[in-house]
Design a protein around this nucleic acid. Structure first.
Length: 383
DNA sequence: TACTGGAGCGCC
DNA sequence: AAAGGGCGCTCCAGTA
């Protein structure tokens, strides 16, 4: 019942966010785009010249590579081979170890970053989706994908950090940014009913008591917990993972059961009662394992989405009294646009509603959820 | 010409 | 032996 209510409230919220849009400082956005993509092209020929000018500093580093198309991975691979770098693909994490081997690697990675903004978030994007009232608008869906998160289009959900200074409150308003802290492990504590893990959630930093219990350093504890939820068992987390099994048996068993269901191809159910089906068909062992990892993560990610929506729905209701709007939902983060004179009340509201929503959603567990809340002018100023 | 899948990368 | 989940977006290459 809680789930049905918050899912439908989230759908209403999506319609509202599509109407409200995300407030933008247009001049700031223009100068950030210009810094990466160059000046706004007037014609198609102008745009082509701009592309050549962006490519030049990379191509210049390799003699004979003038005609390489940097947008074609096959050609990029050949270019790298010509300077003695033999790689299976040209992804960033593949190339990163070669950064010092030849200057073209660093140049290429920098080019990719700028090219991302030039294409996906460039002048065309600005003209199409930032409307004349300086609001960025895109489609929202309340429950999408494997585990049922909210999703947003037109860049609302994957705006590069570089451009975030351009998301700014309009005249007379502030942005209230609220982040759920360590949401996934806290959700695991709640849905698994693991008493020891729930006790760890009482801490502001959940990983600190976990590290103490496991007798490892905090970074190791964090990697191990994340690895358990994502299904990674290789790497440095190995021994810590075994200790997790002993220290938090109920939480780890919960993840293990989901993994086994995924292996078999059985649907899993989230804490809120939503069924997450598994894809069927003849699968290799590796593909079945992949489905197991998906299931393992889906029960966490999906439950986190449910809690988030229950919270957002409550914030939405209360915020209306302050003439505020929810303008962005980002999995574990809410961005509110609020009249300046109501900023303090909005901050208090966000904390209060989290307490109420999490108690309602968990049915009264002792797991603690925390939010980091800041009042800012620009989105990028928070934290 | 229109569509699909892969590569690649942005965010969580 | 090795094994990290999800989404959206753009470009390219191959196909119908």
């Amino acid at each position: 019942m809680v789930t049905a209510t918050s899912e439908s409230a989230a759908a209403v919220l999506c319609v509202e966010m599509e109407q409200h849009g995300l407030p933008i400082d247009r001049a700031a956005l223009e100068s950030l785009i210009e810094a990466s993509a160059g000046p706004r092209p007037a014609t198609e020929a102008d745009a082509a010249r701009g592309r050549r000018e962006r490519d030049q500093p990379v191509l210049r580093l390799v003699p004979g590579a003038e005609h390489t198309d940097l947008r074609n991975p096959v050609q990029v691979r050949a270019l790298l081979a010509s300077v003695g770098i033999d790689v299976p693909d040209t992804r960033k994490w593949t190339l990163t170890p070669y950064r010092d081997k030849h200057p073209v690697v660093e140049a290429l990675l920098g080019w990719r970053k700028a090219e991302r903004i030039a294409t996906t978030y460039g002048w065309h994007w600005l003209a199409t989706y930032v409307e004349t009232d300086d609001r960025l608008r895109g489609p929202w869906t309340a429950c999408d994908g494997g585990a049922g998160r909210m999703t947003g289009g037109n860049g609302l959900h994957n705006l590069p950090a570089e451009l975030r200074p351009a998301v700014a409150a309009h005249e007379g308003h502030v942005l209230v940014r609220a982040d759920l802290g360590q949401i996934e492990p806290r959700v695991l504590a709640a849905v698994s009913g693991d008493a020891a893990f729930a006790a760890a959630s009482r801490a502001d930093d959940l990983y600190a008591p976990v590290a103490d219990q496991l007798r490892v350093d905090r970074p190791v504890a964090k990697v191990a917990v994340l690895a358990a939820m994502y299904g990674q068992t290789s790497g440095a987390a190995g021994e810590a993972l075994r200790r997790l099994d002993r220290t938090y048996p109920d939480a780890m068993a919960y993840l293990h059961r989901a993994y086994e269901a995924g292996l078999r191809g059985d649907a899993v159910q989230t804490f809120g009662g939503r069924r997450v089906p598994m894809w069927q068909g003849p699968l290799t062992d590796a593909q079945r394992a992949g489905r197991g990892r998906f299931a393992r993560n889906a029960v966490i990610q999906g439950a986190a989405a449910e809690l988030f929506k229950a919270w957002a729905a409550t914030v939405r209701l209360e915020l209306a009294r302050l003439d505020g709007q929810i303008v962005l939902c980002l999995h574990d983060e809410l961005l509110l646009h609020v009249p300046r004179e109501h900023a303090e009340q909005a901050v208090a509201l966000v904390h209060d509603t989290l307490g109420a929503a999490s108690r309602r959603w968990t049915g009264g567990s002792t797991v603690r959820f925390v939010a980091d809340v800041t009042t800012v002018h620009r989105w990028s100023e928070a934290k």
